[in-house]
């Protein structure tokens, strides 16, 4: 009757135990840690990146007494390395972790049920169906979005390292590994431009990501935000379908 009666293990006024909610452990600790480290790195990268392209007003005094642009660039590069290290460990965990850990790195395009799910979720977001489907991992539409974001991150990493190699020099490992980007864009001004556009796409992703996480948490009656903290996804409806 009351809310309290539904909480697992809690006794209600009559001394009866509440029915347990369906809970599944989805996001393992490395995935959750990566998510938040990644989020922090992206915030630092976007902010410092913006100020590298459009620097702050000049600092007064001698050049030898100031290093503002240097510090901003250092923060950008450091956060970039954190992001890459995280991404590499996350890729390892895609292999070592549970099924949900590898979800965002591929699209099961051969799976007809999954494809149907993409369109179902699209219709759900267009208010054409009354109830959402419940998924333990990402719903198919979110799955597509996350995969696209991984591609975007890869693009940012590759172009980022290519730009970094310009300062590191032609003998650096960064240039050896990522110098091929200059075969696509011989003029690095273009790489700057598209790296910058990529930053705005990341911002767009963040907006959609946060909105849909909050919305799904409320409307679909399955935990999203707390799931990325505790790792457990709770389905608040007792029974479905």
């Amino acid at each position: 009757m009351t809310e309290a009666t539904q909480i697992h293990g809690v006794l209600d006024g009559h001394g009866e135990r509440a029915a347990p909610l369906q809970t599944v452990y989805v996001y393992e600790a490395p995935v959750r840690l990566w998510h938040w480290v990644n989020a922090l790195a992206i915030i630092v990268l976007a902010l410092t990146g913006f100020f590298i392209a459009s620097p702050l007003p000049s600092t007064p005094g001698e050049a030898s007494a100031n290093f503002l642009m240097g510090y901003i660039r250092f923060a950008h590069f450091a956060a970039g390395y954190v992001l890459v290290a995280g991404l590499l460990l996350r890729l390892y965990w895609a292999l070592a972790g549970n099924t949900y850990a590898r979800q965002i790195f591929y699209l099961p395009l051969w799976d007809r049920k999954w494809l149907w799910g993409v369109f179902y979720e699209l219709r759900w977001y267009l208010f054409l169906v009354a109830r959402p489907q419940k998924y333990i991992g990402h719903n198919p539409l979110a799955h597509v979005a996350m995969f696209a974001f991984m591609l975007l991150l890869a693009f940012m990493v590759v172009t980022g390292f290519a730009l970094y190699s310009e300062g590191a020099g032609r003998d650096s490992w960064q240039f050896k590994l990522f110098g091929w980007v200059f075969a696509i864009w011989p003029n690095s001004q273009d790489i700057h431009t598209w790296h910058h556009v990529g930053m705005w796409l990341v911002v767009v992703f963040v907006i959609v990501h946060i909105y849909s996480a909050v919305r799904e948490d409320i409307v679909s009656r399955q935990s999203m935000i707390s799931a990325m903290i505790s790792g457990e996804r709770t389905f608040r409806d007792e029974h479905d379908e």
Binding site: V197, M199, W200, V204, Y211
Partner: peptide, 21 residues
């Protein structure tokens, strides 16, 4: 430039998200 294109994209998506909400 990239900032103008990016800000426009953020504006459009932001408005779409608000409307959706």
């Amino acid at each position: 430039n990239a900032d103008e294109v990016g800000l426009a994209a953020v504006g459009v998506v932001g408005a779409a998200v608000a409307a959706h909400a």
